[in-house]
Design a protein around this nucleic acid. Sequence first.
DNA 1: CCGGATACTACCAAATTTGGTAGTTGATAT
DNA 2: ATATCAACTACCAAATTTGGTAGTATCCGG
Lengths: 215, 215
Amino acid sequence: MNRIKVIIFDDNDSLRDSVAMLLKESGDFTLVGAYADCLDVTNSIRDTKPDVVIMDIDMPGMNGIEAVKVIRNNFPTVQVLMFTVFDDDEKVFAAIKAGAGGYILKNADPQNLLYAISEVHNGGAPMTPGIARKVLLQFQNMLPDENKDYHLSQREKEVLALLVEGHPYKMIGSKLNITYDTVRAHMKKIYEKLHVASMTEAVAKAINQKLFPAK
Amino acid sequence: MNRIKVIIFDDNDSLRDSVAMLLKESGDFTLVGAYADCLDVTNSIRDTKPDVVIMDIDMPGMNGIEAVKVIRNNFPTVQVLMFTVFDDDEKVFAAIKAGAGGYILKNADPQNLLYAISEVHNGGAPMTPGIARKVLLQFQNMLPDENKDYHLSQREKEVLALLVEGHPYKMIGSKLNITYDTVRAHMKKIYEKLHVASMTEAVAKAINQKLFPAK
DNA sequence: CCGGATACTACCAAATTTGGTAGTTGATAT
DNA sequence: ATATCAACTACCAAATTTGGTAGTATCCGG
């Protein structure tokens, strides 16, 4: 199996050296680049064609999270592994949102970094235990609430979905090939089942505690 | 360090035996219970007081995901580690939503199970790489979109907030002590700034990519 | 001192939504 | 076979929303 090509962005010189040493000793990786900032990310990636990018967050010029966005937008196949000291929700979630494939804290066992690189390269999502738990908890809260079943019929769900997208009755009717009055009939049922009395309430309720993925 | 007390729910007899053997050999765990179904989960947990529960999904009577809900509601400190063959989004997310602290596939290396038990017990969130990636991807999509600043003025935010709660213009006006027409003026501005043209779109956009806590 | 943003008020006409009542059809359940 | 439910259509009257146009007042920064 070929060695995994790794590139690192971190403004701590000695840390870059340590990682370089670590990678070299392991024998499974090849360090193809090491930079103290992300000002020239695009070129660096294009030139070195790494499999995995190890990314710090706090760096002069462009911060690591912005860099992740750039990388993910221009090199969708390159995996980014965050490697930082920050464990606050804001940074963690921002990094994930930006497209990071893993998040390892610097205080973890060095061996974990190596394992994480392999894992992220293999389609996994390595995370320091605490980070993983953080993500899981947040994830739990974001998942649709108690699929509270309002017993909406299939048709009613279709109507509600279009309503949430902002379509007026007549538009919903034509999309569903039914009459304006039929749409109204469904809406009345929906209001009844959802215990609401207006479009806005229905939309809010639909989005908040039910289906319909956020865009 | 004390051994971690483990209990397992799985309708596969030979698998329960294998796990029992595995745990015994490792020396770090104590199997305090093994059941083929979850019909009596509450009592089982109360009696054996485990640290970690290994939970299958497909079982006769009560399925594992329902069982997780029961456990999490009654024994908040007990960690549940899913151990199953299912890797479809629906089951995975349902389990996490139910409160599972980890999700390991049965086709993984047995050694991983042991590691996962320790990890979940230590506040981590062990997941098979593929599952972790699944969760991460879903998580990315659910995270609020670029807290885009639509430059709404304070007043406009107030109006929008009330709109999201389902109040009609006149109600908003009286709550804010302003005229119906003033509310309308704000709404026009809001529509302009949000690039929408109806209450429903405004509400959907407000909830989806902005603040206004879900209820 | 003036342009621009924010907050506020007003009126008109048209479009949309809401609540009620009423009925047909087909499938499913008791 | 009879009751129930989902889906569908229809009409009336009232309430609500929307798009336009118009104007006043205050505050802020160049």
